[in-house]
Amino acid sequence: MNIPERTLLRRLFLPYDITSMAPATKVLVYTLLVLWLLVVLFPLYWLFITSFKLPIQVNDGPDFIPFIDFEPSMHAWHYILFELGNDTLRPYINSVIVAFCATVFCVLIGSFAAYALVRIQYRVKIGNVLAFLALLGLTVFTVTSLGAPLFAAAPVAIILFVFFVAAVGRYFRRALGNDDILFWIISNRILPPVVVVLPVYLMFQRIGLLDTHIALIATYTAVNLPIVVWLMRDFFAGIPLDLEESAQIDGASRLRIFFTIVLPLARPGLAATSLLILILAWNEYLLALFISTADAQTMPMLVAAQNATRGPQWWYMSVLIVIMIAPIVLTAFLLQRHIARGLLVGAIKG
């Protein structure tokens, strides 16, 4: 036994007992944490107070504390919310509609797929996949360079594919399993949106849906689908199989089991995933930049456009950004407990 004597220096650097930290460590830990707290909060604070400043107060140099350094004014809020009125409201409503619908569709479709990949064994013949890709490539080629109309080429390709599967499909042995399908779905996230945005733009232009809510909702759903599948899969895998089998014997169909047993039990995961998708859809910039020009313009577009039209009018900009952050922050505070857990499960199982 050799218990060191508690000198002053040791007392500073050794913990008092196993549950606490040494005083010196404690000071260091709190200093660093508070420092980052300031790094996070100060920009937001500055944004917030700027929204209450008059142009002259902004231009004169920094004022930090309302009522002491400067007299807060509501003029920017008044201008954005009332004088501009509809010009602000329309993108705001667009954003709400698009983000909300995209989140609902994305989480629903993604959960379907994730659940199926957990519970149902798939065997997709490699030969059929190759045939499908070849026909797709051929269709693209004939439509784009030979000028064949899409409405003629697509059915021909589909019929050819069906014939191919019916005639030759059974001779293929090698097949892709659930893990391969999962990998394909998740790997879609690696695809930078800028690669696909041109054809998507042309596609929507062709069918006259450019600059509509539907176009944005559909694209956002597709782009975020891999995340939903990836996150929800582990929540579903964690549900005991017994529960589903029991329901099956009690007479429930697959769809019924999914909606009455599986989804309610995966509620924490649903909350976390939905919040994440909501944030991503709400803040999305690049796709909106291409696909929405006027009618379907979303909030990020409106905020970004401030610069171009009027130069840096910080006070107005701050108001816009504050009203854009507010709903997300509110939702997140309600759900914040779930999101860490949700992300963790996905990350651990990877």
Partner: peptide
């Protein structure tokens, strides 16, 4: 159920990911 469950996701990805990717390549 297998097909019904996974089809929406696959179709969405085909339409907005794989198909545009090929078109984009062209």
């Amino acid at each position: 159920a297998g097909k019904v469950f996974i089809l929406p996701a696959v179709l969405t990805l085909l339409a907005f990911s794989l198909f545009p990717l090929l078109v984009s390549a062209y």
